[in-house]
């Protein structure tokens, strides 16, 4: 009976739950799905992480390559994020060039990297004007179940903290770069931004960490990225239900508390990898 009701009137079905301050999957309105982080999952990558938010699964692999530094900033390297929404993760994505959602997600990740100053791009320079690292951060969604942006940001930060770059020396007589694979060092990660996403239902209920189903039914979405100092790095609200400034502040304080949860989890995971 309930299944039939859900198929015919999905929105009404949700409203019944929201009135009781809970959701069909048993969560409260401000409760996140179980967050799982696994770092170093891909041994052939320079840094990698697998993040699951409930069913939503995002894999991040980071590949470091040599490149020439940009001409206008000879002492900097590059970070190139790319979000891939493959046909595997959901029936709504087709093979071929990235669709709008993938492009918007890539831009969002690029904005987070720039705004939060997660690493100094100067650290990626090996020889000024001659050689620098480019970090290709490939984020691949394996299972699309809503809240892609949060999962992507956690995966990115976890993978960046997992990166080990070999030391490079430029020999003076030949001018060629020599890579010493034996001595690897981590990146200097300055900030660890965490994204928190909200969905607005019927202009009244605000729920965190929406699933795919909730995202399609919701009337508005909001993503807030915070860093450890409680500063906001990126806020993105693409239209939808209008929010009053007071409710926005409530969302911001929830985002700050979520940052602490994720931060503790990340630290634990990375520590357990090191001690192994």
């Amino acid at each position: 009976m309930a299944a039939g009701f859900k198929t015919v009137e999905p929105l009404e079905y949700y409203r019944k739950f929201l009135k009781q301050n809970c959701r069909p999957d048993g969560r409260e309105l401000s409760e996140f799905r179980t967050t799982t982080i696994n770092v170093g999952s891909i041994t052939t990558a320079d840094g990698s992480a697998l993040v699951k938010l409930g069913n939503c699964t995002v894999m991040c692999g980071i590949k470091a390559e040599f490149t020439n530094p940009p001409i206008d900033a000879p002492n900097k390297g590059y970070i190139v994020p790319n979000v891939d929404l493959t046909p595997l993760c959901s029936s709504r994505f087709r093979p071929g060039p990235p669709g709008e959602e993938a492009q918007v997600a890539s831009q969002f990740i690029a904005d987070v990297i720039d705004n939060s100053q997660i690493i100094q791009k100067e650290d990626l320079c090996i020889a000024k004007g001659k050689l620098a690292w480019v970090l290709h951060c490939d984020l691949i969604c394996l299972d699309y179940d809503g809240n892609l942006l949060d999962a992507c940001v956690i995966a990115l930060v976890a993978a960046l903290r997992n990166v080990r770059l070999p030391s490079v020396q430029i020999s003076e007589d030949t001018g060629l770069a020599q890579v010493q694979l034996s001595s690897k060092s981590p990146l200097n990660i300055l900030k660890s931004p965490v994204s928190t996403s909200f969905a607005v239902f019927d202009d009244t209920y605000i729920i965190v960490d929406p699933t795919d189903e909730e995202e399609t039914l919701a009337t508005g979405l909001l993503s807030i990225v915070t860093d450890e100092d409680g500063k906001l790095c990126t806020m993105r609200k693409p239209g939808g239900s209008a929010l009053s400034p007071e409710r926005l502040q409530d969302c911001i304080s929830r985002a700050v508390s979520r940052h602490k949860e994720v931060q503790t989890l990340l630290d634990e995971v990375l520590l357990s990898v090191k001690t192994q």
Binding site: D111, D114, N115, S116, Q117, L222, D227, G230, K231, L232, C233, T234, M235, R236, K237, P238, G239, G240, A242, L243, S244, P245, L248, Q249, I252, S253, V256
Partner: peptide, 27 residues
Amino acid sequence: AIESSEKKVLTISSRGAYSPAEVSISL
């Protein structure tokens, strides 16, 4: 983006780091 009837916020987009208080002042 602010809608005219109740002066509520429809859209937010941002660049750079800032504190929550600065958001409310800007708004």
